[in-house]
């Protein structure tokens, strides 16, 4: 990827975010991203609103059309694709786990988990720790094909450690770089790099 494409790719993953957040997700310097995003705004590829950048329809079209050019290496890397398929498998498990984290089964009915049952939460967190450990080698394989992806590992581990320290919002709160937020961004990143569509 060239740097402009990478910066726009970061905006696509974050949807609507300031330059420093885009820089953090793609691993470029903040000043550089700032300059790139300003340029892209000037040429109508981005909109700047409320301190954050978002793609314009034209910007999205250009971004999407350039992936095949910049992500050729990954798209033809059999090991990378295999690792991606493993990611999708873990993703199925993670989605179930997040559901279990957010809801409790009370007498056959699903109710919102208010996190007052520490024992229940500890069990789900332990499962998350297990999923994370099994995902680590998969991420290492992905990072072999695309080194910047290793950054997600640090963010996932940081969120996991916050959650394990008792800050339960770090599991799935969408307003934080919680485990689920970072996981979702990684998923979006992989889908874009490989030109795939999210399966629900």
């Amino acid at each position: 990827m060239n740097e402009m494409h990478l910066a726009l790719h970061g905006v696509a993953i974050k949807k609507h975010a300031p330059a420093h957040a885009v820089a953090a997700v793609v691993g470029l310097a903040v000043e550089q991203v700032e300059a790139l995003l300003k340029d892209a705004t000037a040429t109508g590829r981005l909109l700047e609103a409320q301190g954050g950048y978002a793609l314009t329809p034209a910007g999205r079209m250009i971004l999407d059309s350039q992936y095949s050019r910049f992500c050729d290496a990954q798209r033809e890397d059999a090991a990378f694709i295999k690792a991606y398929e493993r990611f999708e498998r873990v993703n199925v498990e993670l989605k179930q786990l997040i559901t279990d984290w957010q809801t409790l089964d009370v007498g056959g009915q699903k109710v919102r988990n208010d996190h007052s049952n520490a024992e229940y939460d500890a069990k789900v967190l332990d499962r998350l720790g297990d999923v994370h450990e099994r995902f680590e080698p998969v991420l290492a394989q992905l990072a072999q094909g695309l080194p910047r992806l290793a950054r997600y590992g640090q963010k996932l581990e940081a969120a996991l450690e916050q959650a394990e320290a008792g800050k339960v919002e770090w599991v799935s709160d969408a307003k934080l770089e919680s485990y689920h937020t970072v996981w979702f961004e990684l998923h979006e990143d992989l889908l874009r790099v490989l030109g795939r569509v999210r399966e629900e």
């Binding site: 398929e85 493993r86 498998r89 873990v90 498990e93 450990e133 099994r134 995902f135 080698p137 998969v138």
Partner: peptide, 11 residues
């Protein structure tokens, strides 16, 4: 596979 090798196998 799951416990000793820490693999996530296809279903």
């Amino acid at each position: 596979a799951r416990i000793v090798l820490k693999a996530t196998l296809p279903e």
